[in-house]
Design a protein around this nucleic acid. Structure first.
Lengths: 233, 233
DNA sequence: CGCGGCTTTGATGTTCATCAAGTAAAGTGG
DNA sequence: CCACTTTACTTGATGAACATCAAAGCCGCG
């Protein structure tokens, strides 16, 4: 990194992707990718990937916040996970399927960096270290998803709400006061419950003085208590 | 394959791993692996991998049937998935963690083939094609797990039981009559319900004439009806 | 202004966990 | 080999957790 930074002629100098992802890629290869990559902007609410579409590009999130979701058989949508900048949006199925098995939508205005799959594959083919770091990243992401599923599954409604609030506070906004980027319905789609009960739990937390609610704005008042609820279900 | 088969001097000739996994590996490399691999036998019930143990080997299942499970914080075990021969036991966390985040136990007498991680990594480093096929396989496996989680989550108890019975019949035993390889408790741990209710659902299916139960032996009588229940929850 | 989407609260019924108790099967030690 | 313990399985009764249905308030938007 330190060496190659100033050698780049493309406009990716400030991009953290280099240091995270392309550790093992030569400057030449990075330049080649940078010159052919495409950046795309999406507004809050826009769909970035549609389930069933063919996979042509490797996509990662440069800025913003997105949700990965799956359209269940009975038309109900299920949110698989949220992704932050530098997360791969291309997670599941990227290397094992021809078509996306999930959709991605922007929860906040977002920018993606898109690279043709061909190029990723060609680099990986010629560069085992790069391929291994790919495995590692993809692995980490899916591990996280599976562990979170297991974690949420063993909690009850009240605990799940506490859990997701702490998740937004800690992992996403790094603050105990933030605007919820998702609707009540989307929370329900993530933790697998109904909207009404999500709202009821939020109200209960408010009545108990653990959080404050102003529309979409959430303020965690008693973090300790919230953590205990998230822990003990 | 056809070319390399008779050139091997090690005892892996009959092993399907070659054709699945080592498509892109030179005969020399395969020989090197074969000569240093270790096969291990486990009896029904034995633990193959213990959660928290350090990861030293890449393990795949040669014969038998195993379960991957996670010990939840509240001491309740959760079954993540089942694995058949030629499935990788080393799935999650293999390339992203130092220690196992799940345990593996044999549900039937099983044989594993173990290869030092160092060797896998060294081959992958020098051989991008091999690394890519690794990603593909690992990806496929985790995709399957996540999709199944989503699938099961949107069903109710009765539908979940129907679903898992069909899974055993179709994917594992390829027959409508089989011995359940898992206890009622383990079914409960997989679908996230209590033992009592698992038993109740099984009894209901029996009373409705959809299945027959003789101890651990299950016979699916009306597959169509069972499929409809699994579908419609 | 009125329409539709998101949110909120209440009432009601279903699904499921928990508790309790009993049977069957299988291993254990004298 | 038999009493004894343990483990898996099974059924019923009860209550808690949650979904569903209904209705009303809020807000942005055409």
């Amino acid at each position: 990194m330190t060496v190659t930074d100033n050698m780049l002629t493309c406009n990716c100098e400030g991009c953290e992707l280099k240091s995270l992802f392309f550790e093992n890629v030569s400057t030449l290869e990075i330049e080649s990718i940078c010159s052919r990559k495409v950046e795309r902007e999406y507004q809050k609410g826009e769909i970035i990937i549609r389930e069933g579409a063919e996979i042509h590009e490797f996509i990662y999130l440069k800025s913003g916040l997105v949700k990965l979701y799956h359209s269940g058989s009975n038309s109900r949508e299920q949110i698989i996970c949220f992704a932050l900048p530098l997360d791969f949006v291309s997670l599941l199925s990227i290397f094992s399927e021809k078509r996306y098995i999930y959709s991605v939508a922007a929860l906040e205005d977002s920018i993606t960096c898109n690279i043709k799959m061909d190029e990723i594959i060609s680099i990986a083919t010629g560069n085992g270290r790069f391929a291994l770091s790919l495995i590692e990243k993809v692995n980490k992401a899916t591990d996280r998803i599976i562990l979170d599923f297991l974690e949420v599954k063993q909690k009850r409604l009240y605990g799940r709400i506490a859990y997701i609030l702490l998740y937004f506070a800690k992992s996403i906004y790094k603050s105990n006061s933030f605007d919820l980027p998702v609707s009540r319905k989307e929370i329900a789609e993530y933790i697998g419950m109904t909207v009404e009960n999500v709202i009821r739990s939020l109200s209960d937390l408010r009545k108990d003085g653990i959080i404050k609610i102003f529309g979409p704005k959430i303020e965690i008042v008693d973090e300790g208590k919230l953590a205990r609820i998230a822990e003990l279900s």
